[in-house]
């Protein structure tokens, strides 16, 4: 492990478009690095980082149409450039899905939250990406836009299918993530999120977990569990979900679901925690989420 920085290619151009169309035209050749809040990018492209810049740097922060939260026909839409602070402070989200503001609230520090965007968090595709975890249990989809054959084209992809590995997604280099959309949650849906660490803020998650389900007369249905930092991508605990479907939560049921969720995960040992501890925490968190005790 040499301490000498690796080489990264010199930049040839910089642009800061103010509309989606302009941005898509600029990146149409697929040879642009996209800059949103830069809170991931700046660290990665510094000397010694893992990514070299592409030829052009396209700063998308001035595209105001991509910032903000809205609702239409029972569909929620969050613009890719909505900052983590925006989510934390958003009244609509606070009423409709408090789990998102709750997650934003234990995300990094105020400074990072002010700059970092939800689109950046998703596109960075870190297995520890905090916003991804609750969005997965809300069955969110991402809208990918591109400039093809002289027009803006879009496709919707389930967030579940978006990630292919750490830092890797199905997004093409000529595509921009423009929006995150999900159905307005049912009134009976409950959702919770827990992140590890004695200081959740400014902590890269050792483990994070989100759970949502509809609880009707004590019985669970439409159960979704997502786990962060315990595999190559944020992942769904499908065995645990299936097990919980139709069940009433008891201590035994919670313990079994927790055990299955730990099986669903594939954590590793690294400098932050061992696989053992990650599995241990998954079980603690799943039990707590089922007991609706996400305050930790």
């Amino acid at each position: 492990m040499s301490q000498v920085p690796k080489e990264s290619a010199p930049l040839e151009g910089y642009a800061a478009p103010s509309t989606v169309e302009e941005a898509l035209r600029l990146i149409a050749d697929g040879d642009a690095t996209i800059l949103a809040g830069g809170t991931d990018l700046m660290l990665q492209t510094k000397p010694g980082g893992r990514l070299p810049y592409r030829r052009k740097l396209v700063n998308i922060r001035r595209i105001s149409e991509l910032r903000g939260v809205s609702e239409k026909d029972g569909r929620m839409s969050i613009g890719a450039l909505t900052t983590i602070t925006d989510i934390d402070n958003n009244d609509l989200l606070n009423t409709v899905t408090p789990v998102l503001p709750q997650t934003a609230n234990c995300f990094a520090s105020s400074q990072i939250r002010n700059a970092g965007t939800v689109g950046g968090n998703i596109c960075n595709a870190s297995p520890a990406g905090d916003m991804i975890v609750p969005l997965l249990v809300l069955d969110a989809e991402v809208e990918l836009s591109a400039w093809t054959n002289g027009a803006v084209t879009t496709r919707l992809v389930s967030l579940d299918k978006f990630f292919t590995g750490p830092g890797r997604t199905i997004k093409q280099p000529n595509e921009l993530l423009t929006r995150i959309v999900f159905a307005r949650p049912d009134k009976k849906l409950f959702a919770g999120y827990i992140k590890s660490g004695p200081r959740p803020a400014l902590e890269i998650s050792t483990v994070s977990a989100a759970l949502s389900a509809i609880r009707d007369n004590g019985k669970l249905s439409r159960v979704r569990i997502a786990l962060g930092a315990v595999g190559p991508t944020v992942l769904r605990a499908v065995k645990a979900e299936a097990y919980l479907e139709g069940k009433t939560v008891t201590a035994q049921v919670a313990a079994e679901a927790a055990r299955l969720a730990a099986e669903d995960a594939s954590p590793i040992d690294d400098v932050r925690a061992t696989a053992w501890y990650r599995r241990h925490l998954i079980q603690v968190y799943i039990k707590r989420l089922l007991e609706n005790d996400s305050q930790g």
């Binding site: 590890s196 660490g197 004695p198 925690a273 061992t274 053992w276 501890y277 241990h280 925490l281």
Partner: peptide, 10 residues
């Protein structure tokens, strides 16, 4: 650390 303490208790 939390891990060390949790491990010892476990």
């Amino acid at each position: 650390t939390p891990e060390k303490v949790a491990r010892a208790i476990w």
